[in-house]
C-alpha cells in the first residue's frame, strides 16, 4: 500500500459546505493524504500548471483530482477537456464529484475522458464510503503513461 507516503489530492469545488464535508471524509479515511482545495476551474488549472498564486514549484502535481461540474468562471468539463488534451497532464486521474445525476452530464464526462463519476450522497457515512473507495482505487492505480 502506498498510504504511508500519502498522495496530494486536489479538490475543485465552490460549495463551502461540501468542501468541509469532503475534507472531513478524507481526514477520516486517510489523514496522510494532503488535500488541496480550489474554488473554481481557473484556479484548478493555475494550481496544476503552477501559475499565478501557485507559482511556487514546491507545490506538488496532484495525484488525484476531485472535480465539481457547476462552478463559477470555468466549469468542470472545461477543466477536464484541457487536462485530457494535454499529453503532460492527461495521466492525472480525475473523478467528477457532483450533485448532478443527469444522464447527459455523465455521458459528457466520460466522453471527455473522466476516470470516474460520483454523485455526492446526502448521507455523510455513504459519502465517506464513496470517497474512500475512489481514493483507494486511484491511488493504487497511479498510471505512469
Amino acid at each position: 500500500m502506498n498510504s504511508t507516503k500519502g498522495i496530494p489530492i486536489l479538490l475543485v469545488d465552490d460549495d463551502e459546505d461540501d468542501i468541509l464535508i469532503t475534507r472531513r471524509a478524507f481526514e477520516r479515511y486517510e489523514p496522510k493524504n494532503i488535500l488541496y482545495v480550489v474554488r473554481d476551474g481557473d484556479e484548478a488549472l493555475d494550481f496544476i500548471y503552477h501559475r499565478a498564486d501557485y507559482e511556487d514549484k514546491s507545490i506538488p502535481t496532484p495525484g488525484l483530482v476531485f472535480l465539481d461540474i457547476n462552478m463559477p468562471r470555468m466549469n468542470g468539463f472545461e477543466v477536464l477537456r484541457r487536462l485530457k488534451n494535454d499529453p503532460e497532464k492527461r495521466h492525472i486521474p480525475v473523478v467528477i464529484l457532483t450533485t448532478s445525476r443527469r444522464e447527459q452530464d455523465k455521458i459528457e464526462g466520460y466522453n471527455l475522458g473522466v476516470n470516474s463519476y460520483i454523485v455526492k450522497p446526502v448521507d455523510f457515512t455513504k459519502f465517506m464510503e464513496a470517497v474512500s473507495t475512489i481514493n483507494l482505487y486511484w491511488s493504487l492505480n497511479q498510471l505512469p503513461e
Partner: peptide, 21 residues
C-alpha cells in the same frame, strides 16, 4: 423538477453532515 430536486439535496447534505459532526 429534476434540477430543482438536485439543488435541494445540497443543503440537506450539509444539514446531515454537520449534525453528524
Amino acid at each position: 423538477v429534476y434540477t430543482a430536486s438536485h439543488d435541494l439535496k445540497a443543503p440537506l447534505r450539509a444539514i446531515l453532515g454537520f449534525s453528524q459532526f
